[in-house]
Simulated scan of single mutants.
Amino acid sequence: MKRLIALLLLVAFPAFSATLGDDGLHKQDWMRDTFKDLSEDLAEANAEGKRLVVMVEQRGCIYCDKMHKEVFSREDVSSYIRDNFFVVQINLHGDTEITDFDGEVLSEKDAARKWGLLFTPSILFLPEDVESDETAQSAAVALMPGAFGAGTTLDMFTWVNEKRYELDSGEDFQRYHARRIQERANGSTD
């Protein structure tokens, strides 16, 4: 039966490269399997010249499924994430222990509750430096709550990677995204 489902997925979504893990979550080749000590993950991301992302998902989430099948399956999106981000996946209802930046050790589900995350997928984008008294939620430079299309997703990852949240240009994410939509409509690919 699993072979039939896999074959049907390949026919329906030829670029779909994620697999389902034992926890029921989609696994991409650019996701990292770590000990979920966020300070260590941040140090490793920095050593690789990448940005740390915490991606919170749950089993059976139709929006997570949509993101993996329609957005993360696109080569432009997946290659950008792979090249620029260190992605750690968290299960909204999981029991695996996480060590938050503030040193607190708690289960994935308790961490998600602590961070105020109610919906999946939720993507937390972290800065290169986090104070030892901060949590992942308080340190995050951006939060992407929910499923979005490929353009919005790629724009959010780009906006964070280029540190546009630090710029004094007055171009917050919404203005940046609106400009990128217009540029794509005009045929610009920069």
Rank of each mutant, 00 (worst) to 15 (best):
M1L: 07
L4W: 06
L8A: 12
L9G: 12
V11L: 12
A15L: 10
S17A: 14
A18F: 05
T19A: 10
L20W: 01
Q28R: 09
D33R: 14
T34S: 08
E40Q: 10
L42C: 05
L42P: 10
A43L: 07
E44M: 06
A45N: 03
A45E: 03
N46T: 06
A47V: 04
E48T: 03
G49K: 02
G60Y: 01
I62S: 09
I62L: 05
Y63H: 10
Y63D: 09
C64A: 08
D65M: 06
D65H: 13
K66T: 06
E70L: 11
E70C: 05
F72D: 01
D76V: 03
D76C: 08
V77S: 04
S78R: 15
I81H: 00
I81L: 04
R82L: 02
R82S: 14
R82F: 01
V87W: 07
N91S: 11
T99G: 06
E104Y: 01
S107W: 01
D110M: 14
A111I: 09
A112V: 15
K114Y: 14
G116W: 04
G116K: 07
F119N: 06
I123A: 07
F125C: 02
P127W: 03
D129K: 13
E134R: 08
T135K: 05
A136L: 10
A140L: 01
V141N: 04
L143D: 05
G146C: 02
G149E: 11
T152G: 04
M156A: 02
F157K: 03
E162I: 01
E162A: 01
R164S: 00
E166P: 13
E166C: 07
E166M: 10
E171Y: 10
D172S: 09
Y176R: 01
Y176F: 13
Y176Q: 07
A178Y: 08
R179P: 15
R179T: 14
R180I: 13
I181T: 12
E183R: 15
E183P: 13
E183M: 12
N186S: 14
N186L: 15
D190M: 10
